[in-house]
């Protein structure tokens, strides 16, 4: 297996506040990595660094073979690397972030047309195929606000997949959903995992993490405290803080 994301000694600061501390992490191709941790621990920041939505100051991040430019390099360049990385990295957000002024079909076909220079016919055919896959083909002509949260999130997944990414980032994809809609989104993600998509997932769904993850990362106060197989981390956590966190979230 080859490595698709490689982070070494990554440090990130907001002013004097350090939000990522000496993060070393690598994600293999085809691997599903779930990131857990208390709120404010830096887990969202961690995966947002992978596609450059967050800048970092020290260390090195390599994605898809491209070097992610550091903050000071972003000011004077690095657009090429950033663009190349983002082409190959899909992202799904907690708040869906669908484009409200575009139909579902346009939401999915816009980026392939603008970024991958696909023809409109090709991009729309592909979009319809992806919509069919997430079970929303009938809603292609609707606007996002006409869909339920779960449906919107599935469209957002289809939109990210339309760029044929090598890795998908999920930033708490079910946290903004009503409980009865969580399942439909997790089902789509489960299928993706089964098809061998490389995924980095930040989630509070511990049952899902245990079932789908190849490895689970526990992060606390910006530092990675534990990386292990789900069985190991959930049943026999090595770190004291991991144990406290899990005992708190697994209680109910």
């Amino acid at each position: 297996m080859s490595t698709i994301v490689e982070m070494t000694g990554v440090n990130k600061f907001y002013g004097s506040l350090q939000v990522l501390k000496d993060v070393d992490l690598s994600v293999e191709k085809g691997e599903v990595m779930v990131v857990i941790g208390p709120s404010g621990s830096g887990k969202s920041t961690l995966i947002r660094c992978v596609n450059g939505l967050e800048v970092y100051q020290q260390g090195e991040i390599t994605v898809d073979g491209y070097q992610m430019p550091r903050e000071e390099d972003r000011k004077i360049g690095g657009e090429k690397e950033l663009a190349a990385i983002r082409k190959g990295v899909g992202m799904v957000f907690q708040q869906f972030n669908l484009f409200p002024h575009k139909t579902v079909l346009e939401n999915i076909s816009l980026a392939p047309m603008r970024v991958r220079r696909k023809s409109k016919a090709e991009a729309e055919a592909n979009a319809l195929r992806l919509l069919d896959r997430v079970g929303l083909k009938a809603h292609a002509a609707k606007y996002p606000a006409q869909l339920s949260g779960g449906q919107q999130q599935r469209v957002a997944i289809a939109r990210a997949l339309a760029m044929e990414p090598h890795i998908m980032l999920f930033d708490e994809p079910t946290s903004a959903l009503d409980p009865e809609m969580v399942g439909e989104v997790l089902d789509v993600m489960r299928e993706l995992a089964a098809e061998g998509m490389t995924m980095m997932i930040v989630t509070h769904e511990m049952g899902f993490a245990r079932e789908v993850a190849d490895r689970v990362v526990y992060i606390d106060q910006g530092a990675i405290l534990e990386v292990a197989k789900p069985a190991q981390i959930f049943d026999a956590p090595q770190n004291e803080r991991t144990r406290t966190f899990l005992s708190r979230v697994l209680k109910h």
């Binding site: 939505l53 983002r86 899909g90 484009f99 970024v115 760029m163």
Partner: peptide, 13 residues
């Protein structure tokens, strides 16, 4: 802000 982030994460210039 999420709109810009979503568009950027799709690789748009």
């Amino acid at each position: 802000k999420g709109q810009v982030e979503a568009a950027r994460s799709l690789g748009m210039s």
